[in-house]
């Protein structure tokens, strides 16, 4: 009636011989083509934006550095606008505004939205309901319309635009982070984390957040493309920065009449700049979601 002796002798053998003991797998980040192109284009934008702080061919704000409506040529590579300002200099300086606003707004929205999302997802209950209802009210407005209303109310300015853009982004980050954390909240490793002495907030932010952040990060580039477009749209509609600011949306607006009379370059190049930047963000977004999608890993 005595139970068979367990396999004591084998105990260490298994520990030593199992495949995991000898083969160390390493996750390798293989850059896809969309990732490389996206990163390359963004690299150019960042370089140009930084360079423009110290040097541009001409003063971007000065009128009359050349004649009005000069087509792209030797002296002015991208031509001049109605006031005779150098388009290339303005375009370079514009990168500071459009790229800067986009990056800061995305960073703020990512941070706040993720924190709120983790809280809603982990704690659930009333906190979750309140946050989610708030977000739903917010999202009932189309993004551009909402931005227009707010900017109209608080007035233009770089800071205001950043605040508005961040606000528009927060709901999406909140929902994403909430869904990811909620899916993992009752996982055994969350319970185990609780039992080794972590407080609730530590479980949420130190254990669940790092495992949930993938899809949230993938979304940043989609969000960035959106922010870049809305920022330019506000500028185009005259609701953004002061009209003389070399922001790309402003610049398109300033050139739109001239398009009719054949001076296409004034609107064309800022438009191209916006297209290139949003395109780069979308390419990156694709690449990141490929990387973080568990079905495509390995």
């Amino acid at each position: 009636m005595k139970p068979l002796a367990p396999l004591e002798g084998l105990e260490l053998a298994e520990a030593a011989s199992a495949p995991g003991a000898t083969i160390r797998t390493r996750r390798r980040l293989r850059l896809s083509w969309s990732m490389r192109i996206g990163l390359g284009i963004l690299g150019v934008y960042v370089t140009v934006a930084m360079l423009s702080v110290f040097w541009t061919p001409y003063d971007p704000l000065a009128p009359g550095v050349g004649d009005s409506f000069l087509p792209p040529g030797q002296d002015f590579w991208l031509g001049t606008d109605r006031l005779g300002s150098d388009l290339l200099s303005r375009l370079m300086t514009g990168a500071q505004y459009d790229l800067g606003i986009t990056l800061v707004a995305v960073a703020v929205a990512l941070t706040l939205g993720t924190i709120l999302g983790v809280i809603a997802g982990y704690y659930g209950g009333v906190v979750d309901v309140v946050l989610l209802r708030g977000v739903e009210m917010f999202q009932a407005f189309p993004g551009l319309l909402f931005a227009m209303l707010i900017v109209k109310a608080v007035g233009p300015g770089v800071l205001n635009i950043i605040v508005v853009m961040s606000f528009i982004g927060i709901p999406d980050y909140l929902r994403l982070a909430r869904a990811e954390v909620q899916a993992r909240r009752n996982w055994p490793y969350a319970e185990a984390a609780r039992m080794v002495g972590n407080r609730a907030w530590q479980v949420a932010f130190l254990h669940l957040l790092p495992n949930s952040i993938g899809p949230v990060l993938a979304f940043t580039s989609i969000n960035a493309a959106f922010v870049a477009l809305i920022t330019a749209s506000l500028g185009f509609l005259g609701l953004g920065l002061s009209p003389n600011t070399p922001e790309w949306g402003n610049m398109i607006a300033r050139g739109q009449d001239a398009v009719m009379t054949g001076e296409w370059w004034i609107s064309f190049f800022p438009g191209l700049a916006i297209l290139g930047m949003t395109g780069a963000f979308y390419l990156l977004g694709d690449a990141i979601s490929d990387l973080t999608d568990p079905r495509r890993r390995r």
């Binding site: 996982w187 055994p188 185990a192 984390a193 609780r194 039992m195 080794v196 254990h207 495992n211």
Partner: peptide, 18 residues
Amino acid sequence: YREVQMVFQDPNASLNPR
């Protein structure tokens, strides 16, 4: 939780992958 601890069913799910 110093006094009571738990060993979970699925060791895959009970270890934080990171």
